[in-house]
Structure formats: structure tokens, C-alpha cells
Design a protein around this nucleic acid. Sequence first.
RNA 1: GUGGGCGUAGCUCAGUUGGUUAGAGCGCCAGGUUGUGGUCCUGGAGGUCGGGGGUUCGAGACCCCUCGUUCACCCCA
Length: 425
Amino acid sequence: MPSFQTSPGTRDIMPPDAARWRSFNAIFADTVEAAGYGCIIPPIFEDAAVFHRIGEATDVVAKEMYDFDDKGGRHVSLRPEQTASVCRAFAQHRPTTPWKVWYTGPNFRYEKAQAGRYRQFDQVGIEALGVNDSDLDVEVISLAWKFYQRLGLSGVQLVINSLGDEGDRAKYVDALRQYLQSNQDALTPEARQTLDRNPLRVLDSKRHADIEVIAGAPTIKSFLSIEANNHFEKVLNGLRMLEIPFHQNEYLVRGLDYYRRTTFEFVSTALESAQNAIGGGGRYDGLVQTLGGPDTPGIGFALGLDRTLLACDAEGVFGAPKSSVDVFVVDVIDGRQALVVTNRIQDAGYSADRAFDARSMKAQMKSADRSGARFAVIITSEEFESNNCIIRDMASAQQQTIAIKDLVDFLARNLGAKIPRRLTP
RNA sequence: GUGGGCGUAGCUCAGUUGGUUAGAGCGCCAGGUUGUGGUCCUGGAGGUCGGGGGUUCGAGACCCCUCGUUCACCCCA
């Protein structure tokens, strides 16, 4: 028999970790739905051209697309992120604005995997379309901040910058290129290569020689239009009003070409690795239009689920939830009664598990212990003859004999009433 | 995509300059306790030493290739 394993950069999320993921998503949904964001589920693949709007020169598009031709000859791609899909959905359906949505799900980028960087990786995020107001920028950032806090993270830094509008940015890039070119000799060969492709990215370099050159580089601030500058100041003021600490970093540029004005990133100080950016986002005021929609401003963020959980691990917060059932049924007759009793308990709204394969009582009790059940229901020949069973409190080891028909009442008294499962609320 | 580290039981890892039947702890199963878990004791199952090729009388150890993973670069969540 051949043996298989997951493809590079993919993995199985096993229990109890998968439960942790669900909990992560539930907390995120609760956080953003409280601010009026509705859930959107775009397709996982679509016309590759949609994603090309992210920027032809970006690595995401140029080398990391999971694209292929389908059987109908359509050139499609697994989504490398969801912002472009959301904007395409907006352009396609033209909902009324402001349109505020949130999402969760896997994205795909063909790159070499390492810890915190996978080919299939999950993100949660929000996008808000149709509003220029700087207060929306603040709302968006504050929701991410609030979410991190709800997870229990304390080592998260908000780094923020403004890239100005398209014209501002172009002028700045020219000035930056000029400066870097005149200082080429002091740059590392890697940085010189980057300079040819995208001068902004040179600012990201962490190499010492480059950092010295960067320190003298022009910053975008002086290139911002009055409008963009005012917008940015109001965002910063709003953050102060909400008491959200931030670090301005005039060299913060982001990898996707569509960003305008406010751009931000969340960095975990608990993560040692290079993959310490656990979330990021910004304004993308031109994107909807390039996807065939009306000229519509937009802003949003995406948080890396995997990386955020790594940060949680590093900080020792938001661990995997303990799973347990209410009741574990031990049947030492032949297992047939466990079938009936377990079923009845489940229908009554409680959770119940049991042992199979007619194992010894000791073995079944061991399973009961492992299941984390509050109570064990023990069915033996002697008690069953008079339609009784033993119910054992696993923590205190106290047990009593009760009528099988009274089991659900007993659970209601001790675990609280539950809605029967067959009735959908 | 480039460069370095690492792949031994389900998990975490030992394994001496290549030398008999490859080990430990945890976990799992069974028994001690023929009606009872969490502690303890005893026993057991489980490994093509990532895969393929080579060197050698002999390879888990050495060489080559390959796959996976990890770190850095690159990039990004």
C-alpha cells in the first residue's frame, strides 16, 4: 500500500486544534458583527484576472498564484487573499453602501513553506466599502485591536503609516528611487535588485548596510497631499480617542499595490521568527473600479489565523479548549442498552458517548474518565433487571442507583435543563 | 526560488570511532482488582531508523539522489 502525506505547506488541523479554530472564528464573528459587519463567503477560486488587480509586479501575483486552466479553458486561480474577491463581489452585485462584510477561510499562495507561512493558510478579515470618512479607518483598526485583546494577546504592536493617494505615492516613489540610486554603492546586492523592481520594498530590508542608507531616505510624509495628510491625522486622533497605542512607521509599505492612504500592520512581539506580522490592512480606494465597479473607496484588514495562534501559543493564551461530554455510558451487559440510553440522552439535548466492542468494565471506566464526562451511567445485569442503572459522579466518585427512565430528569437537575435536540430552535 | 540544520515507536527523544535480536519516557492495550476511572505494580502490542541508490564482510550512523520539515534570504498573514 502506498502511504500518503499532506502536500508541502498544507496540514491537517486535528482535534482539539480544529475546535480552537472554530472558537477563534466564533470570537471574531462576534466581535465584528457587533459593529454591523455581515458574513460573506466568496468562492475559493475565480477568474485569475481578478487577482491580477492586486498588482502585476507583486510577488503574490508574479510568482505565487495557484492558477490553472479548468476543463472549460477558463484561466482560474485559487484565491491568494480575499480582498480582491470581496471587491469583485461588490462590483458584481452593487450592494448599497456602506457595505461592511467579514470573512474567514483558506487562501493559497505557492511559496516555500516554513513555520507560520503555509501554502494553504487561513485568514479572517473585514472589508468596508463606500466610505471615505477617516472614522471608518479607526473603526476597522479598532475591531482588529479589540479582537486581539479578546484572544488574550498583549504583545501586539500596531504599526501605521499613510501611503497617500495615487499621485502622492508616485511622486514619492520617484524621489525614493532617485535617492536610493544615488546611494547604490552602499546598498546590498539584494537591495539593489529590489530597487529595480520596487523601490518601496527596499525600505523593508533588515540588513544593516541597507538600514543605514534607509535612515537618510526621504519619507512619504512630505509628499502627502493636504487631504491625505488631514485624513491620516484624523485617523491617528481617533486611535488616541479610543486609547489604542500605535507606532508610526514612515517606512511601512505593504506588499500589495492597491493600498492607498492608511496602511497598518499588527506585529507580535512574542514571535521570534521572521513571520511576526500577524495581521495587516489598509485603504484601497481604487480597487473596486479596476474590477469594473463604480469608483468606490474601501478599507479592510486580514489577520492570519495560523500566525495569530502561534502568537497565542508564544504568550500562553487562548489554548485549545478541553472537549468533554456530559455523560459516558458504560454497559457491561452487551452494549445494546448503551445504544438506547446514549441515544435518548443525546436527543434530550445532552452529549453522551459510550464504549464499543464489549470491553471490560475497567476499560470502559477508563474511557469514561478520558472523555471528561461529568457523569458515568453504568448499566449492569443486576440493576437492569429492575430497570435501574448506576449514575456515578466522576469527580467525587459518589454514585447512586436510579431508574433508567429518570435519567434525563437527573441530568436536568444536575446539569441544567436542555432543549431537546430534535426540535430546531 | 536560493542557502544552512533536522527526519529513529502515536508523541518527545537516546543510540558511543560503522559491529550481534534498535532503546527510554509518555501514550495505547491487557492483567493485578471475575461490578468501577484518575495513583501504583507487572506484562504486551507498536519501528521497511522518511524513501531510493551506493561504499563496506557489516550502515540507524558514511556518500549521492529524493521527499518532508525547519531556520535564514525573498515575500507576506
